[in-house]
Design a binder for these strands. Sequence first.
DNA 1: ATAACCATTTAACATTTGTTAAATAATGAA
DNA 2: TTCATTATTTAACAAATGTTAAATGGTTAT
Lengths: 194, 194
Amino acid sequence: MHKDKFKHVFHFINQFVDFEQKELDAMLHVVEFIQLKRNEIFIHEGEIADKIAFTNRGYLRVYYHHNGEEITRDITPLHSFATALPSFVSEKPSFEIISAITDCELIIIKKTDLENLYQSFPKWERLGRRIIEEMFVESQRRIYSFITETAETRYNRLLRQYPDMIRQVPLKYIADFLGIKLQSLSRLRKNIKS
Amino acid sequence: MHKDKFKHVFHFINQFVDFEQKELDAMLHVVEFIQLKRNEIFIHEGEIADKIAFTNRGYLRVYYHHNGEEITRDITPLHSFATALPSFVSEKPSFEIISAITDCELIIIKKTDLENLYQSFPKWERLGRRIIEEMFVESQRRIYSFITETAETRYNRLLRQYPDMIRQVPLKYIADFLGIKLQSLSRLRKNIKS
DNA sequence: ATAACCATTTAACATTTGTTAAATAATGAA
DNA sequence: TTCATTATTTAACAAATGTTAAATGGTTAT
């Protein structure tokens, strides 16, 4: 039932681990679908992040408050996992906020259910490790790009890698993601066009 | 025997998981100690990273070649794990190089041995996941600091957090780590003193 | 349709960081 | 020690990005 709703998440996890049906079923019994409208919040500031989301549709952003301003650290690509990890792993209130940039459909799993999966099926723990490893590698790539590239190069890379994201996500979030101000991004876009 | 040689690594892993003696023994049988002189290389460019190191003593750096220059992306804190993760997880040749900034003592475990530990003892897989999670969180903190902080603030933070590192690591590596040029770091150090 | 709001651009000027080139300081090898 | 090498600093100028303020464009709610 509704197997197509799991198409993307199955495709994602199959990159890492081959599951038996019973292992998949265990997951299917504990996940939940939710819809978020644009600007709705998935993880609130001060809340303990006790769940993780897979973005079946739409874009989330991870941000926090800094001198009264919102700083967007991350925009989730389509079909990937997101949570406020510092809170999720430490079980302390989250300083990070996660909200929907566009209307979203999320597949949610609670931390307690995830830990049960980890306990019951070593392969799920393996998947958890593999996914985090990939996210870590991507995070390091981004650090390289902050060290070696200009903002313009970072923008062009984003444009190539996630053309759809640039179309759907307001530039102020893109600018934060690139580590520059909105006005600087605008200037740099003008230079690219000409 | 030589239990004190494992003091730091035990302290590190005890933060995450409580092991039984047999689980620890399994690890003790497969690890190896090596000494590196300053500038000796732990992972070469083009090599497949098939091992991971815990820095029992000394500082490693992770760098890669970019337009003929060495770009240092990371300096390992004391008593932490390091490998060229993209190569380690993909088993492809490493573009990252890891070498010793100072004389180092490393505790090494081969990837195959680590995977055997993962297979044999779910708690080891759990530890692997937990450690990566922490590294990922730290990596995200660093991205925040690239987005919101000036180079001077990043330098001051490093100074507070790892005063010993600043003393032992040449400034050119620190500058790369902060994402600025050596001369800019020097200028900024002058401003701080006055 | 209109008004209010949000997104994006533009521009002038300020600040930070990069670039180039050199001088000085510190370190290690012969 | 002395020489050679590496590390660090300095300075003048260039380039990139930030800041402030405003104009323009687009979207949404009523």
